[in-house]
């Protein structure tokens, strides 16, 4: 039973980690938190659902189109509401992205109505057995895609010129500017990349979860806890934080009550902040 819940937690933690990595990329480069990250996940779910409805294809085949759509949405949101407040005090970002979250939920609600939608896949009915542990295929796929996406992001940041420019922007804004890095373009790129990660997590969740306008809220709060747990700005920390959050949630859910599971994660956050404010992996891990 314990092994089962730990494995369940690890695969769910993979999805959490992916949202948190998106948040981390945005924070690493722009030094702000996107308080609409959960709602971007919701947009990803709706994008996957709409394309699935239109084409009848499995959401897993739609990964590339959905990511493209989400990247464009990210760019659009950036130029519309984030770009005007770049360079302002950080509280402006807190308020604007929170406002954005409510706008996105309301707009989706007006367009698609608050009804619950589902995406049907054959993968849902197959379970993978590992000894005494059985895991739902969609969750395992989600975890696998997370690992692939995180590796891809790392590779992008380390090996490409654009990635290097982004890291320079994250490291020291003024020096990067002096060296001719277009920091604003990097901000846009980082924001869109973060939104894309959230959207990808949304797509991976569609076979497991209902699609509805308010679906993002719990994921948003959990991903925020994770980035703080992992030390803001650290991708490795976000992945580990995500896995820990997943395990804690699953174990608490199995042994105490599923209702109380999220509260356990938040309690851990408060304890971590009290005793190790820089996050569990705040030092040593690479910055985005």
């Amino acid at each position: 039973m314990l092994a089962q819940s730990i494995f369940n937690g690890l695969v769910m933690g993979g999805v959490y980690a992916l949202i948190a990595v998106g948040l981390t990329i945005i924070f690493g480069v722009m030094k702000v938190i996107n308080f609409a990250q959960g709602e971007c996940l919701m947009l990803g779910m709706y994008a996957a659902w709409a394309l699935h409805r239109a084409t009848g294809l499995s959401p897993y085949i739609l990964i590339v189109p959905v990511m493209t759509v989400m990247f464009l949405i990210g760019q659009f949101i950036f130029s519309l509401v984030i770009n005007p407040i770049v360079g302002r005090p950080p509280t402006d970002f807190v308020v604007v992205t929170m406002g954005l979250a409510f706008v996105l939920v309301s707009v989706i609600q007006l367009i698609f109505s608050p009804t619950y939608q589902t995406v049907v896949t054959t993968a849902k009915n197959i379970t993978i057995r590992l000894g005494s542990v059985s895991l739902g295929t969609p969750r395992v796929i989600a975890c696998g895609v997370m690992i692939a996406a995180v590796l891809a992001v790392r590779l992008f940041l380390k090996k490409t010129d654009v990635g290097r420019a982004m890291r320079a922007t994250a490291e020291n804004l003024e020096v990067a500017q002096m060296l001719g890095v277009n920091t604003r373009r990097n901000f846009a790129l980082a924001f869109a990349l973060g939104v894309t990660m959230a959207g990808l997590s949304g797509l991976l969740l569609t076979p497991i979860y209902y699609v509805f306008p308010n679906v993002g809220m719990p994921f948003k709060t959990i991903s925020m806890v994770i980035v703080v747990l992992g030390g803001l700005g650290s991708i490795g920390g976000a992945v580990l934080g995500g896995l820990i959050a997943g395990v804690v949630e699953a174990v608490l859910g199995a042994y105490i009550s599923p209702d109380l599971a999220p509260a356990g994660i938040f309690l851990i956050l408060i304890l971590v902040l009290a005793f190790r404010p820089e996050g569990m992996f705040g030092k040593g891990a690479r910055k985005a």
Binding site: L100, V103, S106
Partner: peptide, 10 residues
């Protein structure tokens, strides 16, 4: 109605 609050905030 939350559209109003969110929109005005932005």
């Amino acid at each position: 109605g939350m559209l109003l609050y969110g929109g005005l905030m932005i």
